[in-house]
Design a protein around this nucleic acid. Structure first.
Length: 791
DNA sequence: CAGCCTCGAGTTCT
DNA sequence: CTCGAGGCTG
């Protein structure tokens, strides 16, 4: 057998296997794009070698025989398959063929979205629905009449008048996205089986042997054509027929229309591509049909596919590729994140080589192993993820993946906290990866905003020992940078001068060192010295302290020196800071190394321009009773703390008292005992004293809040989504906050209003679903202008 | 104590 | 954007 014959046999086998899984088992084993690719390869091989073609090749039919459980139905007129176009060029070719054969310029086409559902044929006799069948292999399908009767979108009797004695309507059964999501949400809660995607949902539902199950599935239907007709004449064009079907009671896609010529088709394609994400159902392309039946007859067929129609597919959003490895990335907090290294593959327009696997649990859930063939998708809009593996293609000896026990960067042990999902490198700042990531975070735009200090420089600076803590950044000189670069290039054997800084071997040799980049970096570092308290706190990289917590700390306490010496229970006075976060801040500040770094940063010239007195709102929370609750003493609840506070006015009094005085103050014996035991620990006693001292000091310097003067948006929560034209999201956020609003990241029923810019996504949907007020950009701008904050 | 709402942290590619 | 987990509320 020749190589080509072997390949053809292999392709046929793979396509048949895939067909079987897809059509008979409703359980696809390969991505659609992979199927299409194999089919096209086979088509082209068979076209080049007609002697090897065969009537039972997958190219010669649409599917394979049905699974037997349903009765077979022979379609009076076969249900067609459509040729596919993937490029503008193929669409132009399609139109040219028609123009040449019919000798017509810019013919009219009926155009419609190609729904991702299941094609069916419905037979009506004397206006009554008598039988419905799946497409099957195009000639013979399965009788699913009982199931189709449960689909409310399918009329059981025709409406209107003038219908033929016998009418076969073709269309697509599909599952609307909203219904699909709601169904899965319910299934998840009730412990039922979740549907993989709307297409499988529709196909699986129709193939239920028990129609009562089908009836519970949220299926819908669109008609897109007719098959056999007896006893009446149809209109002379496809678009008129669709209108006729609509009048007889069939749903017809609202997105269908009529255009002329190749440009019209491509315009429609682009318009639908833009609308695609906003549609209530999934589509995988659009369909073009020559509108007039006379022209269709003239064009005829090639094998089973009409020459007068074509499906123009959108680029696949799912692709198949091979997983070549799983690397571990160590983040700023030591989190060990597995990342999939993939053989490069085009997915929805970009080449994907990496995909996050989130954590070890996710890998176990998917059972991904190195060497597996995997299906990759760009989730939501951008981030690539592995959807599933193709089990058939797994090597028999592929080992189950396991989290390494040692950090790939520093060799420290990788450990998992009790009950946590993430594994962490225990090396802390001795791990170069964690150190470098900490510096990267410090320099990042939302923190100290040191422009030009990218990954590359940080790695070189850290690895060569120029920067071991963030404070070292402010000690760097121009000479340090040039020397560092010289050594880094030598280590990497980069020739003198390279494109990354504009130097050339000539300029370096001439001794005129081109050092513009170094000057820029020094200037950027210098620029970052002038910053705000909240940016500074965020930049420190304290566990659990992100932008929002850093901002809250800055607003409530106002002053770095104050924050630095507060015992941890005081941090709980800030809304949204609880025990966990307060302790994390305290833990950070308790470490002498961290305090030293802060000293060095200040000595290095970092100035916080916005420091101020603590917020008056703090004052009311500075009662001794509140402190006792914040200390998290066993058994001391709010009530007990209040009893204690009325008997003892401060820490000294409490520490001096014998246990029976706690009972006299009203505490039950066991609570008094728990308190006495707690106080007996010297560290607790010291914490209590220090915290109470800080409380009294704060109380002395913090004024009482004065009522009135509330801002316009006080107490309101806004959410921003989409792209605004006149100002950035950050800017809009700052302006809304200046008017007293809280700007949150996600929509809930607590949200006061949502500002929706261009291309607003799921947050807008959520707002509409919850009936939350939505502002467009104009409304926002007008509001800001009314309050003197127009951009 | 459960359930809701936010925040933090990590991620891809142009 | 998504997941996990902390904080708050009923």
């Amino acid at each position: 057998m020749s190589d080509i014959a072997v390949r053809i046999a292999e392709l046929r086998k793979r396509l048949e296997d895939a067909n079987y899984r897809y059509y008979v088992l409703d359980d696809p084993s390969i991505a659609d794009a992979e199927y299409d690719r194999l089919l096209r390869e086979l088509e082209s091989l068979e076209a080049d070698h007609p002697e090897l073609s065969s009537p039972d090749s997958p190219t010669q039919r649409v599917g394979i025989a049905p699974a037997g459980a349903f009765a077979e139905v022979r379609h009076a007129i076969p249900m067609l398959s459509l040729g596919n176009a993937f490029s503008d060029e193929e669409v132009h070719d399609f139109v040219s063929r028609i123009e040449e054969r019919l000798d017509r310029h810019a013919p009219r086409f009926s155009v419609e979205p190609k729904l991702d559902g299941l094609a069916i044929s419905l037979r009506y006799e004397h206006g009554r629905f008598v039988r419905g069948a799946t497409r099957g292999d195009g000639a013979t399908g399965e009788d699913v009449t009982a199931n189709l009767r449960t689909v409310k979108a399918i009329p059981l009797h025709l409406r209107g008048e003038g219908w033929p004695d016998v009418l076969e309507v073709r269309g697509e059964v599909y599952m609307p996205l909203a219904a699909f999501r709601a169904y899965n949400e319910r299934a998840l809660k009730g412990g039922g089986k979740v549907l993989a995607n709307p297409r499988n949902g529709a196909a699986g539902s129709l193939r239920q042997l028990d129609p009562r199950i089908t009836a519970q599935r949220p299926l819908a239907f669109y008609a897109y054509g007719v098959g056999g007709v007896e006893g009446a004449d149809l209109p002379s064009t496809h678009s008129q027929t669709l209108a006729q079907l609509k009048s007889w009671g069939f749903p017809v896609s609202a997105e269908s229309g009529v255009v002329t010529g190749a440009e019209g088709l491509l315009g429609y394609y682009r318009a639908m591509g833009g609308k695609r994400d906003g549609l209530p159902f999934e589509i995988d392309g659009v369909v073009y049909k020559l509108d007039d039946y006379e022209g269709q007859r003239e064009m005829g067929f090639v094998s089973r596919a009409p020459r007068w129609a074509i499906a123009h597919k959108f680029p696949a959003q799912e692709q198949q590729t091979r997983l070549v490895g799983i690397d571990i990335q160590i983040g700023r907090t030591g989190a060990a994140t597995p990342v999939a290294r993939l053989e490069p593959v085009q997915v929805a327009g970009v080449v994907v080589t990496n995909a996050t696997l989130h954590n070890a649990d996710q890998i176990a859930r998917l059972d991904v192993r190195v060497g597996d063939t995997v299906i990759v998708r760009r989730a939501g809009d951008v981030i690539p993820e592995i959807v599933r593996v193709v089990p058939e293609d797994r090597a028999a000896d592929a080992p189950v993946w396991q989290m390494p026990t040692q950090c790939p960067v520093c060799g420290s042990e990788i450990v998992r906290e009790e009950g946590e999902a993430v594994w962490r490198c225990s090396g802390e700042l001795s791990c170069p990866a964690q150190r470098n990531e900490a510096i990267r975070h410090f320099a990042s735009r939302r923190a100290m905003d040191i422009e030009g200090l990218g990954e590359r420089f940080i790695e070189d600076l850290g690895d060569l020992g120029y920067v071991t803590s963030v404070a070292d950044l402010y000690r760097l000189t121009l000479d340090d940078l040039l020397e560092m670069k010289h050594r880094a290039d030598a280590a990497k054997q980069v020739p003198l001068g390279d494109e990354r800084d504009g130097t050339t071997p000539e300029t370096v040799k001439a001794g005129k060192v081109a050092s513009k980049w170094a000057e820029n970096l020094i200037a950027a570092i210098d620029h970052s010295r002038d910053t705000t308290l909240e940016r500074f706190l965020f930049a420190l990289g304290i566990e659990h302290v992100g932008e929002s917590t850093a901002k809250a700390l800055a607003q409530w306490f106002g002053d770095l020196a104050l924050i630095r010496r507060l015992p941890w229970p005081l941090f709980k006075r800030v809304p949204d800071i609880g025990g966990e976060v307060a302790r994390a801040i305290g833990h950070f500040l308790d470490q002498p190394g961290n305090q030293r770094v802060i000293d060095e940063l200040l000595a290095g010239g970092v100035t916080l321009r916005d420091q101020h007195a603590p917020s008056p709102k703090l004052h009311g929370g500075l009662e001794f009773a509140t402190l006792l609750v914040d200390l998290e003493i066993p058994k001391i609840t709010k009530v007990r703390a209040e009893q204690l506070a009325s008997a003892f006015t401060d820490a000294a009094a409490l520490l001096d008292a014998p246990q029976h005085h706690f009972v006299s103050a009203g505490l039950p014996a066991d609570t008094a005992k728990a308190l006495a035991d707690w106080l007996a620990d010297d560290r607790h006693a010291a914490l209590l004293s220090a915290a109470d001292a800080a409380r009294q000091e704060l109380r002395a310097i913090t004024p009482e809040a004065v009522a009135g003067g509330a801002s316009v948006l006080e107490g309101q929560t806004a959410v921003l989504t989409g792209t605004l034209a006149a100002l950035t999201r950050d800017d809009a956020k700052a302006r809304l906050e200046a008017l007293g609003a809280k700007v949150a990241g996600s929509v809930s029923k607590k949200t006061s209003f949502v500002v929706a810019g261009e291309a607003a996504g799921s947050k807008l949907d959520k707002a509409q679903e919850l009936g939350v007020e939505v502002w467009d950009e104009a409304r926002l701008l007008q509001f800001l202008a009314e309050h003197g904050l127009a951009p």
